[in-house]
């Protein structure tokens, strides 16, 4: 973890919240019986507000904590880390300021989640299908359409992930819009999300 890299004070305290949000997203999805993970909202919000390093930490620690009850998820930490990096990058480019662009960004996140995810599954499960729900779609794709196993797995995971990530980025967008200005002012990338009317106040006197 970031021993030598200095994290600013508020980001440090936002990281545990981001990690908890990753878990709660999944928990609420479960309570609402949604067949989705929704477990990267915290990573994306923290990445977007605090930058690359906090984003990476949220992703990494979330998976470490998840691995307590299911250690194999440790290998998928790389996905969550990539989400954090991507979120920080897109945030700097101003992507999360526009709803349309935010929606589009779900494609990138799903590509990371589905692509990297199926690759990881592919290796871990001996070049075969994994134990995730995506196999329910991947196996028929392989069996009935005769697609190669990896391609079936990729299509299934990417297809499921796109729904997941659309909901995820919408949630992240809503949160970024709703955070009060005084709070944004103290975060490394917070300025990006301060409304123009508030920015104008600072230029006076």
């Amino acid at each position: 973890m970031a021993n030598k890299i200095k994290i600013d004070k508020l980001s440090l305290f936002l990281i545990p919240i981001g990690i908890a949000v990753n878990f709660i997203g999944g928990q609420i999805a479960l309570l609402l019986k949604l067949p989705l993970y929704l477990d990267a909202i915290g990573t994306i919000v923290v990445g977007a507000l605090c930058g690359v390093v906090p984003g990476i930490i949220v992703g990494l620690v979330s998976n470490v904590l998840n691995s307590i009850s299911d250690p194999i998820t440790l290998f998928y930490a790389i996905l969550n880390i990539m989400f954090g990096i991507a979120a920080a990058y897109l945030s700097k480019k101003g992507v999360f300021k526009s709803f349309g662009k935010t929606l589009l960004s779900s494609l990138l996140f799903a590509l990371i989640g589905g692509g990297l995810g199926s690759l990881m599954t592919w290796v871990l499960y001996g070049f075969d299908f994994g134990t995730g729900t995506s196999s329910i779609f991947a196996i028929p794709l392989h069996e009935t359409l005769g697609l190669p196993k990896f391609l079936s797995q990729f299509i299934a995971e990417f297809g499921m992930d796109i729904f997941d990530k659309v909901l995820t980025v919408i949630a992240a967008f809503g949160i970024l819009q709703a955070i009060p200005t005084r709070f944004l002012a103290k975060l490394p990338l917070g300025k990006i999300y301060i409304k123009d009317a508030d920015l104008a106040l600072e230029d006076e006197d």
Partner: peptide
Amino acid sequence: LNDVSYKYPYTK
């Protein structure tokens, strides 16, 4: 405290 004034960022 001597003639102290203060304004939070982004406030009027």
